[in-house]
């Protein structure tokens, strides 16, 4: 067992291992499964992720409340025209993040990663990395253990709940998990992975959770799209050997304290931010009565 990034860094250095190696070993012991069983269990999650990240690209998926939907397809169609500002990879990643978020809001199947609200970020980040870096499913599965390990550190030392820490705790954590994993899959060092995770959390520190009508829809899907972009650029910065001045464990602690300092109205209660705007209130009244 480990509690901090510092401990993982030390073991990785001593035993010349990757983050995923350490997490896989820990899980084999923790769950009492064989390595193969563990890999197959994670493969199930990967399959659900693949499906949710692509389902809404080609067909319009509407939310149960009727408030949102169809944006994944819009971005995918726009990308196909070849005139985007930020390029194919970024637009494709945004469309995939929207896809999972829209599938989630339509009562489709997703993997909470680490929550349902932030479930669009990891699948999109992993599929984008797969395409760009030519990775196999087995590479992605290893990467998911890295992502899970980084998520564990955040859950243990801070929070992954929007009600406790705002959106930074959900979409920020998901982006940090994805960024660390992408770096490992791209061949970066363990230090690079934690730098990437630090950047992802640092970039959105303080982000509030203000869902309209209290539903996991708006602005959640937007923040999943910007979350995956955050993950990708954080990974790039780390691979470029940019270093986080503040170590990951301290960034996590800072995120937690910022979350605690947020007023309750900005922590998933739908009493502040976009939810409290005249439009937000009007939508809420229409849906919930």
């Amino acid at each position: 067992m480990f509690n901090k990034a510092e401990e993982i860094l030390e073991v990785c250095k001593l035993e010349n291992k990757s983050i995923s190696d350490i997490i896989i070993e820990k899980e084999i012991e923790h769950l009492g499964l064989t390595r193969q069983q563990l890999i197959e269990k994670m493969r199930e999650s990967l399959e659900v992720m693949k499906h949710s990240a692509t389902e809404a690209l080609e067909k319009e998926v509407k939310s149960v409340s009727g408030l949102t939907g169809g944006n994944s397809k819009k971005i995918e169609d726009y990308k196909k025209k070849g005139k985007t500002l930020s390029g194919d990879l970024i637009n494709s990643a945004m469309a995939k993040a929207f896809s999972t978020s829209e599938v989630n809001a339509s009562m489709g199947k997703i993997v909470a990663a680490p929550t349902a609200g932030a479930s669009g970020i990891l699948p999109s980040a992993f599929l984008s990395a797969k395409e760009k870096l030519n990775l196999s499913d087995d590479d992605l599965i290893k990467g998911l253990f890295t992502a899970g390990g980084v998520g564990e550190i955040i859950a243990k030392n801070a929070t992954i709940s929007g009600a406790e820490g705002g959106c930074q705790a959900e979409c920020g954590s998901a982006a940090a998990m994805a960024a660390a994993a992408i770096v490992e899959m791209a061949g970066g060092s363990v230090e690079d992975s934690f730098n990437a995770a630090s950047f992802a959390l640092t970039n959105i520190m303080g982000l509030v959770c203000d869902p309209i009508a209290g539903l996991v829809e708006y602005p959640c899907a937007l923040r999943n799209a910007s979350g995956v972009v955050n993950a990708l650029i954080s990974a790039d910065m780390a691979l470029a050997k940019v270093e986080s001045l503040v170590p990951f464990d301290e960034v996590v602690e800072a995120m937690y304290k910022v979350g605690k300092a947020l007023p309750e109205s900005l922590r998933e209660t739908a009493l502040g931010g976009l939810a409290a705007t005249p439009t937000g209130k009007r939508c809420s009244k229409k849906i919930l009565g």
Binding site: L31, A112, A113, V216
Partner: peptide
């Protein structure tokens, strides 16, 4: 400090939209 499994973080596999209100 609670000991997590990665599957507590990457999971559950569920029908959306909310782990508390739906799953």
């Amino acid at each position: 400090m609670k000991d997590y499994s990665v599957f507590d973080i990457l999971g559950p596999i569920m029908i959306g939209p909310s782990s508390s209100h739906t799953a």
